[in-house]
Amino acid sequence: MTGAEAAGAPPRGTRRTARALGKLVLLAAGLAAGGLVLRAVGAAPGTDWVDRYVRDQGMFGEAVFLGAGAIATAAGAPRQGVAFLGGYAFGAAEGAGLALLAQLGGCALSFGWARLVGRAWAERRLAGRYGARLRRLRDALAASPFGATLALRLLPVGNNLALNLLAGMAGIAAAPFLAASALGYLPQTAVFALLGKGVRVDGAWQIGLAAGLFAVSVAIGLALLRRHSAGRTLEEG
């Protein structure tokens, strides 16, 4: 125990959780506030290509959104941004559904790449400096692929792409991993799609509902952080 922890300071894992949660809150607030401000002058952040190729383009626009969203998520772009643009382009319900499909496609791409290409690299990392931390998380995923993945997806901390790659390298079954990912993606996808819809139509109630749902999803994630072994491993690592 360090001197700061002995003096009653929050443990390092708790401080890390608070910082990660703060970044997520700032992301949500920034998307909403920036969109509302720029909407007043006829634009919204990052929406030019959506206005040109996606909105009001029928099935072509949906296909463009799905493809671009999957590639962006697979490359590490924030999945919350994909959901925001889905809500902006298609409305809350349809936008959340299409964003979820795009996110799941990106998840499958990075998971599959890691499974086919990255296994040898993973073994080297597991034997190296960060091996102990990665092994604990890999073991939690291997022991409970669906439950551990769901817990980690709902947490307000962690990295979407890193989890995709670790799961692929660990060789866990694809079906429970993808199913749990889809379910775990849903709360924040709905929240950010509502934000995108609210920005486009100046809908204060959508933004308020998104804020409430966001608070609920964070509360669930924090509870899981303490209760599930995968969450405790992530916090400790």
Rank of each mutant, 00 (worst) to 15 (best):
R129Y: 08
L155E: 15
I220M: 15
F90D: 12
V37Q: 08
A72I: 00
A68K: 06
A173M: 00
A32C: 02
G208I: 04
A70V: 00
R153Y: 11
P187M: 06
P10K: 14
R52M: 07
F214C: 09
A70C: 00
D51Q: 10
A72K: 04
E123T: 08
N160C: 11
L165K: 01
V117Q: 05
G184K: 03
N159G: 07
G13N: 11
G91A: 08
E62K: 12
W205A: 12
T189E: 07
T17H: 10
A167C: 06
R124Y: 14
A75N: 04
G203I: 01
L85Y: 01
R55W: 03
A215P: 12
R39D: 09
V201Q: 14
L163V: 11
G168N: 06
A40I: 13
A204M: 05
V82D: 06
A173F: 10
A162R: 06
A211Q: 07
A173C: 06
G231L: 10
E94N: 11
A89T: 07
R19P: 14
N164K: 00
L26F: 13
A89Q: 09
G34R: 04
A63N: 03
G231Y: 08
G61E: 09
E236N: 11
R125E: 15
L38T: 15
N164M: 00
A18F: 12
A96Y: 10
F146D: 02
I172W: 09
S181V: 13
A75K: 02
F65I: 01
G61C: 00
